[in-house]
Amino acid sequence: MIALDHVTKRYGTTAALDDVSLTLGDVGVTALLGPNGAGKSTLFSVVGRLIQADAGTVTIDGRDVAETPSSDLARTLAVLRQDNHIAARLTVHDLVEFGRFPHSKGRLTVEDREHIERALDYLDLGPLRDRFLDELSGGQRQRAFVAMILAQDTRYVLLDEPLNNLDLRHMTEIMRLIRRLADELGKTVIVVLHDINFAARYADRIVALRDGRVVADHDVSGFMRPEVLADIYDSPVEVHQIDGKPVALYYE
């Protein structure tokens, strides 16, 4: 379990996270939604010890993030950030290999290599493995980053907008992969999404943030209601049942 206890993070006068208490990781896939600037990325950064909260504590499986050795956490929790810019000229294989660093410290075992191959395979990167990252399209690069996180093989996987830059097919494939991570490999995935319908189709639980606070926290059927959605985004959203599944329409 990832537990946030009265966590606050301020930038100047704006509170990116405002006294948030939240427990994540009880179900396989949790989607984190909310308008731009709601505090989603900040929440990931605090949980992933990338920034320090001003107040409150974060514990992972009962261990305080601030006091657990970083190298231990790296084997429990992996975070993919929203913007990733790598200046170094690395191949796809190099990058995925670094995902094994918390386990291998640079000396790859047979098991490490298997994880690397599996990650490359899952993300459809076999043909691109020897390509340099700066020779890839945005979506291919995004898949390489997800493969790296996958190779890290942690119980908790935090993905901040992993669908960025992806085409329709790869968006669905990443979401299916996330489902498989939870269902087949028993991992706990928390994913920031902007598309309500992807969240409704693939997540077990949906948490919405707004202005640094949790404003909704439901299972899918509880979340996909016009009044809940309108509240979060301040704009009207219709919900229709298509093939027995709720679909939000927000194009008007």
């Binding site: 190298s71 956490l73 790598i86 670094f98 995902g99 660093f101």
Partner: peptide, 16 residues
């Protein structure tokens, strides 16, 4: 190499 990925990547991978 990991440092070359930037502080966030390095931290995520447990590097001091």
């Amino acid at each position: 190499s990991v440092i070359g990925l930037g502080e966030e990547f390095a931290t995520n991978l447990g590097l001091n």
